[in-house]
């Protein structure tokens, strides 16, 4: 049995009178890829933001590598090794690839005056991207010159380079063509094989990410309603569950139970 990377225990989150998450418990092992699936508004983003330290849960506990922790901020979570890759990738279009790779963790030639060590950042970025088999023309180009898949790959590579132990991917294949998403999923597979990185993929497109996940959790109305190993379920079963929920919701509206 491998080691536990991240676990939540009965997490709930309310914003005023709106409850976004109820009693959510998830468990993630090292080297495991967990698919966190659910429709828009199911609470995926809220859960992500709690795990990245952006929001604090209203109630519930978070365990990181077996120890209970309180995530104070995004920087705190990142310092621990919980690295988010957001949908907008948090890349700066106007800035070149290697500076983006080190954004907010810049190497500096002079600490006092905060002068950037471009040569070293460039060298390390080049080396690391090559290792991750990310194919880009050069680390000197601005992000705006790259395709969506290349950007995603750089964002993932950045997180891994930052020594991520838990990688949180938000909709990695959203708005992407078949080829592009194949490239991303390939990078994720490499992560799983090479490093002992635990990955959570948040997605609402089940078919895209299904293959790469070891386990899937389904989030509906702020609750985990389904938790199973990928090999014991199918895309069809998941779709069925979501459609069932939709039908029930519609019935609730059309024929409210009093």
């Amino acid at each position: 049995m491998s080691e536990e990377a991240l676990r939540t225990e009965s997490i709930s989150k309310s914003f005023g009178r709106v409850t976004a998450l109820r009693d959510v418990s998830i468990r993630l092992m090292r080297g495991e890829v967990l698919g966190l699936l659910g429709d828009n508004g199911a609470g995926k983003s809220t859960l992500m933001k709690i795990l990245t330290g952006f929001h604090r849960p209203t109630t519930g506990k978070i365990f990181f590598e077996g120890k209970e922790i309180e995530l104070k901020s995004v920087s705190h979570a990142r310092a621990l090794g919980i690295e988010p890759v957001y949908q907008d990738l948090a890349l700066i279009n106007e800035v070149n690839v290697y500076r983006n790779m080190f954004l907010q963790k810049e190497l500096m030639r002079n600490k006092f005056f905060q002068i950037l060590d471009d040569r070293e950042m460039r060298r390390l970025a080049q080396e690391h991207l090559k290792q991750m088999r990310v194919n880009i023309p050069s680390v000197d180009v601005e992000i705006s010159k790259l395709s969506g898949g290349q950007r995603q790959a750089i964002a993932v590579a950045r997180s891994v380079y930052a020594n991520a132990k838990v990688l949180l991917l938000d909709e990695p294949t959203a708005a992407m063509g078949v080829k592009e998403s194949a490239m991303i999923l390939d990078v994720i597979r490499q992560l799983k094989e090479k490093a002992q990185v635990a990955v959570i993929i948040v997605a609402h497109n089940y078919a895209h990410v299904f293959d790469v996940c070891d386990r899937v959790n389904l989030l509906q109305n702020g609750k985990i309603t389904f938790d199973r190993a990928t090999k014991d379920t199918s895309v069809e079963e998941l779709m069925g569950l979501v459609l069932h929920e939709m039908r029930e919701a519609r019935e609730q509206i059309e024929h409210p139970k009093l």
Binding site: D88, I92, N93, V95, L103, M108
Partner: peptide, 24 residues
Amino acid sequence: VKTRWGLHTVATGGNLLGASEVGI
């Protein structure tokens, strides 16, 4: 062009959300 402050200034104006997400 050469300092962290400058880079973070560009990042803040170029992608406000992204810059805050990486902790700038």
